[in-house]
């Protein structure tokens, strides 16, 4: 079982308290009506399938209830870092990237 650091609670807690919530940094357009069919399709359905570092959302659903973002390596499953919703995706150095 993974241990996950909630950036709001600032505690590292068992995976059981959290729920995965899909890819991070998928922005809902401020004015959806202005979106083309292709843009809206991409927003709804098109997701990365990364082998390596993946930015994804998690919710501390059985804790503070907040949604936050994480960088996780999809091969090792390891969490490289977590950060609050709205913050930009952190830049990793090469060692962290390959973890």
């Amino acid at each position: 079982m993974l241990l996950i650091h909630c950036p709001y609670c600032d505690e590292t807690l068992p995976e059981l308290e959290f729920a995965y919530a899909g890819q991070a940094h998928v922005v809902r357009a401020a004015d959806p009506s202005s979106q083309t069919d292709e843009e809206w399709r991409d927003f709804l359905f098109i997701r990365d399938n990364v082998k390596g570092v993946h930015a994804e959302r998690w919710q501390h659903v059985h804790g503070c209830g907040r949604f936050f973002n994480a960088l996780r390596h999809t091969v090792s499953d390891k969490f490289l870092t977590t950060y609050k919703a709205g913050e930009p995706r952190p830049v990793l150095d090469d060692t962290e990237r390959s973890a």
């Binding site: 729920a19 919530a21 809902r28 959302r57 919710q59 659903v61 209830g65 907040r66 949604f67 709205g86």
Partner: peptide, 13 residues
């Protein structure tokens, strides 16, 4: 409730 929280927290701050 989760869906409402999701929009409230991440889209409509």
């Amino acid at each position: 409730l989760n869906m409402m929280e999701d929009y409230l927290q991440t889209e409509w701050g």
